[in-house]
């Protein structure tokens, strides 16, 4: 089937559905199932789900940089922390209104990323990884040192319950907090999905695939790398605000190296570049840590480490990385080859 240039067949009109029906239905079903969580499980499990959702938003932020734009990061916890502290401070000193906390926290994350981003994007690949790691460490030490703002190593407590709708009571019930986080996480997911389908999303994938070529067709690539960094910073900060509202306590440990590493793990387990994969990965990581970790008397790091190693060897493309690798793991007679072109979202 060597068809180089001789083919004179008319161009088959690309089939374009006006609306991605299947995806929409799928997202709807997942959201519905998630909405049932507080009716199905006990308080402890619901709280774990809440943390998983917050972590999913952070994982999407890491994935936007690592998977979509091809800039592997170990520093997103810093912006997560900026968002968490901003959200907490707004809540304590100014307003317990959720929307306000979310917006201001996101803005703070955007500003932080704008300031630090120009340094980070001086490197690519492993150099970028190392610089972001350093930025993460600065954030961590700063949080522990700036006592007057962050409460130092004691952290910030006394965060009032978040008010979702003006004029109503603050949310203290575990299930209601879960719904608050779920709604914000779903909105964030949809926003990211829109971003990925947009021209800018295509630009980011181009940046990952071949930065030199992007430059050759007239892109100022550093600007787009910075833009990706800023979007991701804002998203991480949004997750941070959700964290502050749901835990009602923020401490330097929330922006440590481990948080960044686990977010990266979620992305790798889920499938680099895939947003629903990252969310699923976040779920797996949080439940491994909180749930299995308890079952195995606190050996969560051991389990997470095993998860890392197994994911790299057995699922090189992650959970979302196409069926071929699953088939290799669980071979069946029916071997119907379909290497569909993987389009991330």
């Amino acid at each position: 089937m060597s068809a180089t240039s001789s083919g004179m067949t008319p161009a088959p009109a690309p089939v374009r559905r006006p609306f991605p029906v299947r995806t929409t239905v799928l997202v709807g079903v997942v959201v519905l199932l998630l909405a049932l969580v507080p009716w199905t499980f006990g308080a402890f499990t619901v709280a774990t789900f809440t943390r998983a959702l917050v972590f999913a938003v952070l994982a999407m932020s890491v994935n936007l940089l690592t998977g979509v734009a091809g800039m592997p990061t170990l520093g997103q916890a810093a912006y997560f922390g900026v968002g968490a502290y901003t959200g907490a401070l707004v809540a304590i000193h100014w307003s317990d209104l959720g929307v306000l906390q979310l917006v201001l926290a996101t803005l703070a994350g955007v500003v932080a990323a704008l300031v630090t981003g120009p340094l980070a994007i001086r490197g690519r690949g492993v150099a970028f990884l190392m610089i972001t790691l350093a930025i993460g460490e600065i954030g961590f030490s700063a949080a522990g040192r700036l006592d007057s703002v962050t409460g130092g190593t004691d952290g910030l407590s006394g965060i009032p319950p978040v008010v979702a709708v003006p004029g109503t009571e603050g949310l203290v019930n575990e299930g209601l907090i879960y719904y608050y986080v779920l709604v914000v996480a779903v909105v964030a997911y949809l926003a990211v999905a829109m971003l990925l389908r947009s021209p800018f999303g295509l630009t980011l994938r181009g940046l990952r695939d071949n930065e030199g070529r992007l430059r050759a067709v007239g892109y100022r690539t550093d600007s787009y790398a910075l833009a990706a960094y800023v979007y991701a910073g804002g998203l991480a900060a949004l997750a941070g605000s959700l964290w502050a509202s749901s835990q009602r306590f923020v401490a330097p440990g929330d922006l440590g190296f481990e948080v960044s590493a686990l977010a990266l793990l979620a992305v790798i387990v889920g499938g680099v570049g895939s947003m629903w994969g990252a969310c699923l990965g976040a779920l797996v990581v949080v439940f491994t840590q909180d749930y299995l970790g308890q079952l195995f008397s606190g050996h969560a790091p051991l389990l997470l480490g095993l998860l890392f190693v197994l994911a790299v060897y057995l699922l090189p493309k992650g959970i979302a990385g196409g069926r071929s690798q699953w088939r290799r793991l669980f071979p069946r007679e029916r071997s119907q080859e379909d290497d569909e072109a993987v389009t991330p979202v």
Partner: peptide, 20 residues
Amino acid sequence: RGHLDQAALTLGIALIAAEV
């Protein structure tokens, strides 16, 4: 297979070894 996989693998090994 790229730096990310190597970083992930060695990070995983580090987590396991630390716990042990």
